[in-house]
Structures are given as C-alpha cells and as structure tokens.
Design a binder for these strands. Structure first.
Lengths: 390, 390
DNA sequence: ATGTTTTGTTTACTGTCGGCACAAAGTGAG
DNA sequence: CTCACTTTGTGCCGACAGTAAACAAAACAT
C-alpha cells in the first residue's frame, strides 16, 4: 500500500519483489486495492519496450479515487486542496490572503473551501489534515506558538478543525465524521518530501526550513515523522549559531531562529523590510535579483555560515543521511551550494557525517501534501477498515 | 521474548495480556522458550498470596541457561563478564588496570578473560558484545575517536574482536564462530538502562553521561538504540553551553565536552588534578567529600548550569520523555536535583517538554550489560534460529 | 464440601501465505 | 509464420499460526 502510494510499485511484478512475497499474494493485494477503488489496472501501456517476457500491467492511481482534504494556514493566508493517492494535487481553492486572529474563523473558512471542493469533485474523502506554522502538541492537537498568525498560544486546532469538518458535513467513506488532524507545517513538508519529493528512499531525513519568521525542523525516521514524546521535537530554532549574537526571547543569544531567518537576511543586507509583502518574499526577491550587490552577497554568505553551523550541530546529534532545505534556506543553498556544504562538513565531527547530501526541497505546496499524508495514513495502515465495503 | 528478557512477563498470564494473544498461544511461546533452555517454569512460589483463582507459575530465567560474553574497555582498564537473560551479571573477571596502546592486544586479552569465564561456567554463549569509549561507525565497526584509550582513530574493533573470539574458539550454540559486536559505551549503557534500569517503559529515552573526559549521549527510541544513519548520532559533546567559554578542538567554543566533564569540574573548583587516579574518580570524590566547601559547591552549581543548558538544547531537539544521567553527571544531579531540573525547564521551550523527568542511572556496569544486549538481540529477534535445536 | 475465579491445556477451526502448476502475453530465431 | 523462451498473472493445495471453545487444575470463599 505504501509502495503504491510512494510510486515504488508501478506493476504487480515489482510489487511482488518489494514486498518479498509470492506473485499470488501480491496479486491478491492489488486486487483488493482495485476493489476498494484506489488503483486501476491498465493492461495497455508500459513504455519500457524491448523487455523480454510477458509485459506487466501498470498499477495506476484510480482517476476518480478517494481524496484527502488538505488545508494550510500561514502568515500570508490560508488555502485548501484535495490530494489523491500518490500525493497528487487534485484541486486547489484560491487561497485567501488575510488571516483573522480568531483561529475558529480561519479554520471554519478553510474547511468550507475544502468542503466545496469535495462537493464539486464528487469524490470520497479519506480524511482531513491541516498544516499550521506552530509546534503542535500531541496528542491534544493544540498549537503552542502560532505567533505568525497571531493566534493565542495553545489554540485547540485539532478540536476546532474536527468540529468544523463535522459542521460542514464532511464524512469518510464509512459514513463517520472525519477527524481533523493537525501538524506543524515543516514537519508535514518533510513527510511529503520523504514520500514524494527529494527525500525518497532516505532512512534518516532531516528537513530545515524558514517560514516568514523563525526556523523550523523535522526528522523522518524510517518513513515515520519523528515528533518526539509530545510532538515537540525538532524545535531547532534555538541552537546557538552566533555566540556574539543578539539576545533571543528564549533567554539565550545568537539563536538560529533570529540569526538565519528572512528578517536576519534583510537586516544583514542593510535593507529595511517593508510591510507590504511578506518577509520571506522580500528576502527571496532580494536574493534572486540583487545577488551581484556586494552587501547582498555578504549577507547571503553570513547566513549560509550560520545555517551551516546549525546544521552541523544537528548532524552531530541526529546523523541524518540526507538534509533537505526549504523556505529561504533553499534559496541560500542554491545561491552557493559549495559554501554551505563545506561549512557543514568542517563543523560536523566525522568526515562521513559531514558528507551528508544537502538538497533543496522539490515539491510545490509540500506542507499541503504533507497535511494530506496525515489523512491518508489511516488508509495506508488498513485500507479495508478505512474504506470499508465499497 | 523481549517481555521475558525485560522482566515484564513474570508469568504466562501476564505474558498473555502483554502479547494480546490467547492463553494457548502464550503457553506455546513459553513452552518453546523452555525447550530452548532459556526459561524455567517454577510451579511453586509466587509471593502474591491472597489472590483468587489458580495461581500462576513463575517464568524464571533458566539457572544454567546461555549467556552473552560482555567486554568493556575504558580509560582505567578493561573488563570481561558473562551476562544471562534478563541482564543478570553471571560472572565477572577482575578488570585489568592498564590499557596497552595497541587495540589488538587489549581486545585479545579481554577476549581471553571472557573465554576463560565461559569455560569455567560451562554455559552456552549466545554472542559477544564490546563497549568502547568512542563513537563506533556502522556498519564497519571502527572506533572513530578512541582518544581516552590512546588508540589510533579508525581502529577496526569489530574486526579485531571477531577475530579474537574466533582465535579463542568461542562458538555459539549452533556451532558457528560468534560475531564480535561493538558499540559506544554510553549508547550501550542507555540500552541497558532502558531494558533493565531507570529507563524501563520509556519510549523516548535520552541518556547523557561523562566518561573520564568528554560527554557522551544516547537515545533509545521505542526500545531500539538510535545510532543515526552511520552510527554517529548523539555526539552531544559539541553543543555550545557557554558562549564565552574556552575554544574547543572542534573549532567552536564553550562546548559541553570541555565545559561539563570531570576535568572542567576539578578546574572550576580550583583543584589540580593528580595523575594517580582517573579524573572521574577524583571529581566524584571531591563532590562527595567536600560539597560543603564553597569552591566545590560553586563548581558544582556552575557545571549543573552548563549541563542544564546542554540538556535543554537536546530536549528542544529530541523531546524525550525521560532523561538519565551517568558518570559525573549522575553525581551532579544527586547533589542538587532541583537546580538542574529548573535550569532545564527554564531553557527548554515548552512547559511540557521542560517537565521531563531527570533520573540518575541505576545499574551497576550498565555499559557491560548493554554490550551483552547487543549479543542477546539476535536471540530476542529469533530464538529458534539463534539457539537451534537443543 | 461446594461453588467461584483464574490459570493452563487440549482440540477443532479458520485464515493467511508459500509452493506449484498452468495459462497468458510478449520477444527472438529460424 | 511457427516455435522456443522468458516473464507475468492466476488458481489450487497444503503448511502453519493463532483463535475460539471446551475442559482440567489449583487456589480461595462460604
């Protein structure tokens, strides 16, 4: 099931090999998934001609199969979408560009947009996931620090989301109201990149990304998100990366959060951030358009050095086999990949862990796709129970 | 099997409950383990009188069952032991007190001591494990930084240990030569504490300990040691805990490794370390005997603050549900538990993750027991394959 | 002594998966 | 075009694991 979802089982033959079972068993699994309306077997095409033997049938994703309702709230607004098996974005609602300070209003609005998409599509809904720019405590599902959206700390997003979905009449194929699962946006982006993007095949994937303010991290271990014992792991923003740096609200100084985020970049380049566009967008544009300017280049180098120091600290603690960068960090990596890699290699302890590949994220809307992964998980774990008799 | 090993299955009845199977199945499992000579069923005693119903038989560990050969090398010498099921120390060889600079000599000597114990005991050997004070790269099994024992970096301990065992004629019950598994001592101590000590029941266990120099860390996730993608995770010694601190060989300054180890404590207390006993022992004695001395008390407070800063950083990244401290850190915790707990709580981001319990380690020779865990693991995973037909 | 409660064992059944034989669908040689 | 060959897909049978249910055993309560 995971194999089909992550695209590692294009045919029954490779499914057999990947599962390590007999062809009979793999065939039965495929038949069950087809009966549940998740996949569709195409006898026709499989590009690879010239191969000996009977050609495999392609295990395609059912074109009108069930979808997950995915939602995201961030500093610039909110957005809803439908995501099919395999992480395909099936439909997207145009995002709203302002965020009311009342989480209940925002969540009701985004649920309504998602429910409308569901009605239009006529597809079944396997569940719903929401990405928020905040640590989310488990198992309560409360947003601990949703500063970027000006919500009160401890906002019960799981509860609000679930209630909103029930009010909008969203039900799963078995007819129960769906649970509104919520997660941190960077965590969910990491999950999406692991399953469908630059993190595929990694066993110890570390993701680090800026939002509009601050720095977030996530770790995917053996395909599962590592959220710690209470959902609070990978709060990487308060690693010290500049001992002489400015004091941080956390009580320390020179934290990654304030030394390597978009505002730090704009400040280091001597620019005054304007209020009209988001800090992330301003920083991206400055980096893209004025990299030739020595002050911009110097700011980029400075942030790369600080980011590298933070990543090296994480490499020493987590020993990942791959690192993926998002937000402004992705652009910093692309501006000077060699500089970042050499800083990480120099400051991490052992040559081999210093040689960890650092890649930019590759998925559009990876937090949105990751939110859908939360919802899809139940289907992946037990398709029959989640979808029931068709 | 794990349940018996970790003492969570004292009777067939609780084994049934823990496994979530029927009594018939649990009985069959117990019968198999008894046939393999691992456990022994005592019909007689079970302290808990007054209970209704037929009393359970006790599933005891077979008194002459198989053992693992455990070995440890540290700055003060080396030591060999036999460890039975359940982490029982069955026999210990008196440790040698000097360590030759040639790893092959040390390992041959410790293997010989272990083999002698095996001959004396007449028990079967399920495998062999070795604890070394160094990061051990996986899967090669090379010791990357065995500075404390003056070995060359990259010493192939796995290979040397395996070869030594073959030369000593140590074989497993199936008659094959045993593989010499090697691991970092703090990692192995954490594993032992998780299964048999203060870490029992923890799902996200963090251990931090000093050896004689430096600071090591380990993480046990869902019962398995987290060693990262190449065995290099939890190198916690280079977290910054004192921005104004001394420069460290890693290129940064104020690292945990040099700011919170036994030498740092002795220096902070204004004592000149003598060469006769190990730094760890000197620091322990000073802390125990002269805590009333203001300079010792001040040094203790200083180290607790630095350690707390480091632990808080780890809590933010790993979000453990329990922390266990070993080496000098254990004594520092016991000297002033409240101070350490409040520093960690203040400097970790969220109240809940700041409330993580911090406990001293409870096992004697936990690295030795942990080394045996490496060897026992194969039996736990598949008792029949590892022990074969009796 | 008898009933109750919990534990342990035996027996029959069920469901999953591997092994195997066979059919199907292509390529390549003659 | 025919025939061998290779690989994929499917149906059938048997091994095996684990459940369910009935029964036996060993304590306590009355």
């Amino acid at each position: 099931m995971e194999l089909v979802h992550t695209g590692r089982a294009p045919t029954r033959a490779v499914l057999t090999a990947e599962l390590g079972v007999t062809r009979a068993t793999a065939g039965a699994v495929a038949a069950e998934l087809e009966a549940l309306g998740l996949i569709q077997v195409d006898s026709r095409p499989l590009g690879s001609a010239g191969a000996q033997g009977r050609p495999s049938h392609r295990l395609g994703i059912a074109p009108r199969g069930p979808v997950a309702l995915a939602a995201q709230v961030h500093a610039d607004g909110f957005r809803a979408a439908l995501v099919g098996l395999g992480g395909q974005l099936v439909a997207t609602a145009p995002g709203c560009m302002t965020v009311p300070a009342d989480p209940a209003h925002v969540i009701d609005a985004v649920v309504e947009a998602g429910a409308e998409l569901l009605r239009e599509s006529g597809r079944r809904c396997v569940g719903a996931g929401l990405a928020v720019p905040s640590a989310v405590a488990e198992p309560e599902g409360t947003a601990l620090n949703p500063l970027h959206v000006a919500w009160p700390a401890g906002a019960p997003v799981h509860e609000l989301f679930t209630r909103g979905l029930a009010a909008a009449g969203v039900t799963n194929p078995v007819g129960e109201p769906v649970e509104g699962l919520a997660g941190n946006d960077v965590n969910l982006a990491a999950l999406a990149e692991h399953r469908h993007g630059a993190g595929r095949g990694s066993a110890h994937l570390l993701c680090v990304a800026t939002g509009h303010r601050g720095v977030g991290g996530a770790l995917v271990l053996d395909g599962r998100l590592h959220t710690g014992s209470a959902g609070l792991a990978l709060e990487v923003g308060h690693l010290t990366v500049n001992p002489e740096g400015r004091p941080c609200h956390c009580g320390s100084r020179g934290c990654l959060d304030i030394e390597a985020d978009p505002l730090a970049f704009l400040t280091a380049a001597g620019r005054d951030p304007g209020p009209e566009v988001s800090l992330l967008q301003q920083a991206r544009e400055l980096l893209r358009d004025e990299y030739a300017d020595p002050s911009v280049r110097a700011a980029s180098d400075l942030l790369i050095d600080r980011l590298g120091l933070g990543l090296a600290g994480l490499v020493n603690i987590l020993n990942p086999d791959r690192i993926i960068l998002g937000g402004l960090h992705r652009e910093l990596l692309e501006a000077d990949p060699e500089r970042l890699r050499s800083v990480v290699a120099e400051r991490s302890l052992w040559g081999r862990s210093g040689g960890v590949p650092i890649l930019p994220c590759t998925l559009d809307h990876n937090s949105l796709v990751g939110a859908a992964e939360l919802a899809w998980q139940r289907v992946l774990d037990d398709p029959l129970a989640a979808l029931g008799a068709v």
